[in-house]
Design a protein around this nucleic acid. Structure first.
Lengths: 336, 336
DNA sequence: CTGTTAGCGCATTCAT
DNA sequence: ATGAATGCGCTAACAG
């Protein structure tokens, strides 16, 4: 309820002085009055009004966190998104900023929110390039892109090495003796993340003289839930190992395979991606290509903070590594 | 970039008139000028400044969504929280409001945020009563409580019938021939949700002449991950069925049991709560007491909107039902 | 139906 | 080291 003005009156000083104390500009105020004002602030339970601050400074303490979505789907049903946005939230609060979580497939909304709230910066996750092209504010505001391959000069970016991930998957599965494989994507059409994982996977297989036929690339998990399609894949191509672009898809695939009577990993091996908590809850627990989501979130937020504090910083790009975590969903392939 | 003032000048009308058009008060403006101004708004790409609006109206379009947490844990790692907050987010956006997601175990922070942002309302999830007691703003602001049993007169509340859920669990398991059972909570000390589920469970068992010994009430899942503790429980009390306060705990329990060599449901039955997507990903898929999280989110947001629009509305309380979803983690108990 | 006026609470010159 | 004045962009009460 208390305002700067009221505190100023109570302390017998000017508004400016109180403002300086609140914002930590102690070199402009005598240590005497600093203490006096601070105790008044504590007593009165003063809380700065964020709207007024945003208005005067033309910048709020809000960071937009924007997630690619399909219409009004619940984005947090995707455990990767939940884990990642949760981690971003933690890091933002640590830095005194507030996340404004926006899911959308219509980036006109986004543009409006970014400007309407005078956000200090933005973090994009998983956005498709064709959408991002339409957002103008992006170049004028501190922004970090993640989980996407949108390329314009001067953009900050934190990614995981999806191609290397695909390559490691191929190395591992081929090394375990597998020769007939399949790949399940989230959305091979739209997601460049998926495309890069497939790219690395296919290239490394090719290097080893193994080809991944087109009909063994499942473009979206929706197909895998359809018993017909899955059964057909298993009968026709008889893959002994299936690499999935996420643990979520892998978990659902394991379930679908069970329903059709296939045992994992005795009949088919399944390899995931992300190393989410979910990977330990399936049966068998998922072998997977791990990424460090907490580290990613921290890097992203730190990078953003840097660019908010110093607006003319040159753009940065960081690529995070992935590594293999072996559990029990992949086994060595034995002929016959 | 454009402001109301600029549009007013361009249109040759006053600021007020433009404001009325923006806010849909068409009855105060001639349809002529409405159209003229609307086209100007579209051309200029005008977006209202939320900070200015909040300041002038002393109320922002922000709704605080506050989740009980432990320090800086990632709240969305809990799949129930992810699902619920995601659903709330969808409903809030549908109504033109923005979620401010706050996790905390220190409600002094919360109080500050609520006031600092001039939030239009607040939604609490899973908060412990001892924390809520310290928040003063609660009675002066439209608020809906969920997943908690904080009782002060005049508070809005949407809950699920936890006690009935516990009772139905008992009916089901006893009906399947089980006599020796256990209960695993998230935090029996703090969570009144857990306490009520246990209450209903125990009471219904008692009605059937079955007692649930204290040592068969596991206060927190941390104990269950400890193979020693779990092994001891299984050896000493040999429960043939275990009722868990959430699917997440149930999924982890199933895993822990597997590791000790127990088969589910052949050796032990496991019953969950919530009916999350996760319940279909475990092996065996979880039988569980289902709640409709989407409906809950919709009810909560609708209720909140009502109280924001009309501040003197009498408080409301709604209790949602739960129902049994049978999958494969519970089987009939056969002697020997 | 339209315009004028006066804040909302704060940051930020520029004086002193 | 401190204060007075100005404006951020908008809403709302009041006049016309």
């Amino acid at each position: 309820m208390a305002t700067l003005k009221e505190i100023a009156q109570a302390a017998g000083v000017s508004l400016t002085t109180v403002s300086n104390v609140v914002n930590g500009n102690y070199h402009r105020v005598s240590s005497d009055t600093v203490e006096r004002i601070q105790s008044l602030i504590r007593q009165s339970g003063y809380v700065p009004n964020q709207a007024a601050r945003s208005l005067a400074q033309r910048e709020s303490r809000i960071i937009a966190v924007i997630v690619q979505a399909i219409e009004n789907e619940n984005i947090f049903r995707n455990p990767y998104t939940a884990e990642y946005v949760g981690a971003l939230t933690v890091e933002l609060y640590k830095n005194g900023y507030f996340p404004l979580i926006r899911y959308t497939d219509d980036y006109r909304d986004v543009e409006g929110d970014l400007r309407g709230w005078n956000v200090a910066g933005a973090i994009f996750s998983g956005a498709y390039s064709r959408h991002l092209k339409n957002i103008k504010s992006l170049t004028t505001m501190p922004t970090v892109f993640t989980d996407c391959y949108f390329r314009i000069p001067g953009i900050n970016h934190v990614g995981v090495d999806d191609e290397a991930g695909g390559q490691m998957a191929a190395e591992y599965l081929a090394g375990m003796g597998h020769r007939r494989m399949a790949f399940v994507a989230n959305s091979i059409e739209e997601s460049e993340v998926d495309q890069h994982r497939l790219l690395g996977f296919r290239a490394e297989l090719a290097d080893r003289g193994i080809t991944l036929p087109d009909q063994c690339v499942i473009p979206t998990p929706a197909n895998i839930y359809n018993p017909q399609t899955l059964q057909e894949l298993m009968r026709r191509d008889a893959p002994s190992a299936i690499f999935c672009t996420s643990d979520r898809v892998a978990a659902q695939l394991v379930q679908a395979l069970h329903l059709l009577g296939y045992r994992v990993p005795e009949d088919v091996s399944v390899l995931g991606f992300d190393n989410l908590p979910l990977a330990e809850l399936t049966h068998p627990p998922l072998s997977t290509l791990a990424q460090d989501i907490n580290q990613k979130a921290k890097l992203v937020v730190d990078m953003l903070m840097r660019h908010i504090r110093q607006k003319d910083l040159p753009p940065e790009r960081t690529l995070l590594g992935v590594w293999l975590v072996e559990r029990s969903s992949v086994r060595r392939y034995e002929e016959g």
